[in-house]
């Protein structure tokens, strides 16, 4: 295994984060903190508890997940799309690195960045609303698994996209609506029965439900289903990435 190669890609991608600290870290932390402040501390104080948890605390896992999903997808997609766009991808493709090592470098860095961001947002939220974490290990499990899975999705997007517009389409038009409708701000029990069924087709419901369970032991769906669905999505993304590299799709004509 070319560990030096993996390390080179990983450190290069991480270095990009430090060079763009305001955009990469501060901007998502501030925007998510505004959600906490408005929906948690201000409006939340007038909303009754949800499943025995104050509304401000209830939305924390969903908002962390929102940020985690968006940042994972955007970091990973930009990470691989930009070298394609400016042409520096030639160096990666001509290097003695396997497909797995390329993915490990890019997706590893994107997942690290978004997981760190998730933890920073969690720490920031704890300053604004009272938070308890009932199962910290499960919380980290969902945090890391989601970061890796959606970084893989971002990697796929970064290879599929042939313009910056396409690069933005999936996060803005698919991830954001699905996250908002996936129970970030409410429990799906609060929806009419028909919409509860429809919501179950949204994969993000399972992520948010499992993540929220690790905090408050309240879940819309069982923990087992949440873990299974998340792992299934991870496997699907891995298979797509494998197919991309086997065929050279958009990389090796």
């Amino acid at each position: 295994m070319n560990l030096h190669g993996v390390k080179a890609i990983y450190l290069f991608e991480m270095a990009r984060t430090w060079r763009t600290l305001l955009q990469s870290v501060l901007a998502p932390v501030i925007s998510t903190s505004l959600y906490f402040f408005v929906f948690g501390a201000a409006i939340g104080s007038r909303i009754t508890e949800v499943d025995g948890v104050s509304y401000g605390a209830f939305i924390v896992p969903g908002l962390i997940m929102l940020s985690l999903l968006m940042q994972s997808v955007m970091n990973a997609s930009f990470g691989i799309y930009f070298p394609r766009f400016i042409g520096t991808i030639y160096e990666i493709l001509s290097a003695p690195v396997s497909y797995f090592e390329i993915v490990l470098g890019y997706v590893g860095a994107a997942a690290t960045k978004s997981a760190l961001l998730g933890l920073i947002i969690l720490a920031t939220a704890s300053l604004i609303v009272p938070i308890e974490i009932a199962h910290p290990i499960w919380m980290m499990f969902f945090l890391v698994l989601t970061a890796v899975t959606f970084s893989l999705l971002g990697f796929i997007l970064g290879i599929w996209a042939d313009s910056f517009e396409r690069l933005q389409i999936v996060p803005m038009l698919i991830i954001t609506p699905l996250t908002f409708l996936g129970g970030s701000f409410y429990s799906i029990d609060m929806l009419p029965p028909v919409w509860q069924t429809v919501t179950l087709f949204n994969p993000i419901v399972y992520l948010i439900s499992g993540f929220r369970w690790s905090f408050y032991e309240n879940a819309d769906v069982s923990l087992g289903i949440s873990v299974t669905m998340t792992l299934a999505f991870l496997v699907l993304c891995l298979m797509i990435v494998r197919g991309i590299f086997r065929t050279g799709y958009r990389l090796r004509p």
């Binding site: 030096h4 190669g5 080179a8 450190l11 290069f12 270095a15 160096e91 290097a95 003695p96 690195v97």
Partner: peptide, 12 residues
């Protein structure tokens, strides 16, 4: 930085 990156990428 970029020259070091290239060396690492090629496994050195």
């Amino acid at each position: 930085g970029t020259v070091k990156f290239s060396r690492g990428l090629f496994g050195k």
